[in-house]
């Protein structure tokens, strides 16, 4: 698939961001999303993307992510609330089975729309 990197992806970013047919795909640079300062930066970066869109369509892919903390879950909830307040859509994809268990335990698998693959997630946007 042809994806265009976005201009706001910088050398110090914790994210890789690309745009395809009005959908913003976000991937994480780090394998472990545990450090409080990194999580705050990730939250601020994704929030800026959401704020720059009218009706944001955001796909967050967890490719290569091995660990995440409850603070990272909190950031995802904040982003979800922000996207919904702008009448947008948020999808999560490619979550490692052990991390998916964290979503099940916290029942966040019912709050978020989670897909196994990027393709399935992309196809789910309306």
């Amino acid at each position: 698939m042809d994806r265009k990197p976005m201009a706001n992806t910088s050398a110090t970013s914790r994210l890789r961001v690309s745009e395809h047919e009005g959908i913003t795909r976000v991937e994480f640079v780090d394998r472990n999303i545990l450090d409080e300062a990194n999580i705050q930066q990730i939250g601020a970066e994704i929030s800026r993307i959401v704020d720059s869109k009218t009706q944001p369509k955001i796909l967050i892919s967890f490719d290569n992510v091995d660990h995440l903390s409850s603070a990272a879950l909190g950031t995802l909830i904040t982003i979800n609330n922000r996207v919904r307040s702008k009448d947008g859509q948020l999808r999560l994809a490619n979550i490692d089975p052990q991390i998916y268990e964290v979503f099940i335990i916290t029942k966040l698998n019912k709050l978020f729309q989670i897909h196994q693959t990027t393709q399935q997630a992309l196809a789910s946007f309306s």
């Binding site: 409850s70 909190g74 950031t75 909830i77 904040t78 029942k107």
Partner: peptide, 21 residues
């Protein structure tokens, strides 16, 4: 309890639940 319906959208309070799980 962060898994209760009224708390599920609150961004904090899941650490202890995960430790216990």
């Amino acid at each position: 309890d962060p898994t209760e319906q009224e708390n599920v959208e609150i961004p904090s309070g899941r650490g202890l639940t995960l430790m216990r799980a």
